[in-house]
């Protein structure tokens, strides 16, 4: 997995490339932990995300919870496979998916 970070004022865009699974989820978790201070708008670009496991969902959920307190989180470019996972797990109800 690779993470491309782009900070524009208080808007942080994270592009996640590859697989978000048990092995790589802690990496994203660490990245979020150090980057979210002062961020009002978090955008997660999933255009290049191939796979998400429950560990990955957990990190997304945590990010959503954090952003609920300090602003908004938007997930965009979700492909069909990932969207199925979001639907199956009910994440579609709590995430702001574009």
């Amino acid at each position: 997995m690779e993470i491309e970070k782009a900070l524009n004022g208080t808007e942080l865009t994270l592009k996640i490339i590859g697989r978000l699974d048990t092995v790589t989820a802690p990496e994203l978790e660490a990245c979020l932990k150090e980057s979210l201070d002062g961020v009002a708008n978090l955008v997660m670009d999933f255009a290049a995300l191939d796979y998400i496991s429950s560990a990955g969902l957990r990190v997304i959920l945590q990010a959503q919870k954090t952003m609920n307190k300090q602003g908004d989180m938007l997930i965009k470019n979700v492909n069909e496979t990932i969207n199925e996972v979001f639907e199956m797990t009910g994440f579609v109800d709590i995430l702001n998916i574009e």
């Binding site: 969902l57 959920l61 639907e87 797990t89 009910g90 109800d93 709590i94």
Partner: peptide, 12 residues
């Protein structure tokens, strides 16, 4: 249509 995961968020 599935509900949200358990322990994910209060009040679901």
């Amino acid at each position: 249509r599935a509900g949200f995961v358990l322990a994910g968020m209060e009040g679901v």
